[in-house]
Nucleic acid binder design. Structure first.
Lengths: 140, 140
DNA sequence: CTTGGTGCAAATGATTTGCAAGCCT
DNA sequence: AGGCTTGCAAATCATTTGCACCAAG
């Protein structure tokens, strides 16, 4: 999935937030990262593009972008929050307990079941955050 | 669900960790709490039983108990971790975005689907942590 | 212009840790 | 006895905030 430079600007404008070079940089860092970076990682990557971006700005940008549903926050039980571009298709995260690897599980079926169950309780789901701690099955 | 006093001791012994009055107190506080308390809440409740329990001990006890799978940690995106006795039946958590209320959704069907999907990817699920941000549906 | 955004450094909140003393096995 | 636990206070880690300046609409 690639983004055109002005595609990023549109995302910001559409969300009604100002377009700044720092936000562009943060988004660019996230777009290129497929490893669910922490705020610190994002800052490090953003700095390779613009040495002057501060930590505070990265945190503020991430918070703003999460609010705008452009970015998604993933909290693993311990350790800092991780971030990724908001997925078009919702998915769960599998964290391999042996090596810390994070992979994604997208299932239409799972999403449908979840909303059905929530609806039965009288709720609509705004967003979800699901982390499964897993271990590789033995090869037989 | 009630626990006998010595049932708690057995849980600790079975997990191979020492039985201390502080750990008993922490567990007792959790058993009586059905509101997913934070570490601070647990500390406050524990102190009503034993004024001398320290914050550090509560944190250490909770960490130990989570390791031993006696207690489960629930992390909501912002704000401190919350805790509950490890459920016999796994469930998801619904967080009402309007009032912060946390309720539980237990579904055999959901659990089954999740493990099936994980298995298809070659993984077994050790535990899961799923938080749905929800809003009450309008009454029609 | 005017409001929102930024950098810096200091502040905060949650959780962890070093150390000396105490309790469990 | 010997090691795991505790309490206390200080330390750490992630994240947030106050403030003066700058930039976007």
């Amino acid at each position: 999935m690639t983004y055109q430079p002005d595609e990023i600007d549109s995302m910001l404008r559409d969300a009604g937030i100002r377009v700044t070079s720092q936000r562009r940089t943060v988004i660019a860092a996230l777009v290129q990262s497929h490893d669910h970076p922490t705020a610190e990682d994002v800052h490090a990557r953003a700095k390779t593009v613009d040495r002057s971006v501060s930590f505070a700005t990265v945190y503020r940008a991430l918070a703003t972008l999460v609010d705008a549903a452009i970015v998604q926050r993933i909290s693993v039980d311990d350790g800092p929050s991780r971030f990724e571009m908001a997925p078009k298709t919702e998915h769960d995260h599998l964290v391999d307990v042996d090596n810390g690897e994070v992979l994604e599980l997208a299932s239409e079926e799972l999403a449908a079941l979840r909303s059905r169950l929530a609806a039965e309780l009288g709720y609509e789901i705004l967003s979800h955050h699901s982390v499964l701690r897993v271990r590789k099955l033995q090869k037989l």
